[in-house]
């Protein structure tokens, strides 16, 4: 009986370590996480066509190149 309890405890310890290990590994693979950041001041201008038109003077551009 005592032998069985010991085996159970050992099994539980390994199982818990495995679960913790998988969680840590996953965090490493997935990297960080992008958190929302308040940006209402940016939005106030970039949603307004009139403001954007007034603030931006287009330069001369070229395009449509190669391959």
């Amino acid at each position: 009986m005592q032998k069985l309890d010991k085996a159970k405890a050992l099994y539980l310890t390994f199982a818990s370590l495995l679960v913790v290990g998988v969680i840590v590994w996953n965090l490493g693979v997935r990297g960080g996480h992008v958190e929302p950041v308040a940006s209402d001041a940016c939005v106030a201008c970039h949603l307004d066509a009139q403001i954007i038109t007034g603030l931006y003077i287009p330069p001369e551009t070229a395009g449509g190149g190669g391959g």
Binding site: V43, H46, L47, A49, I52, Y56, P58, T61
Partner: peptide, 9 residues
């Protein structure tokens, strides 16, 4: 290109 074609959201 005008500003609205580039930076308007």
């Amino acid at each position: 290109m005008e500003g609205i074609e580039k930076f308007l959201v």
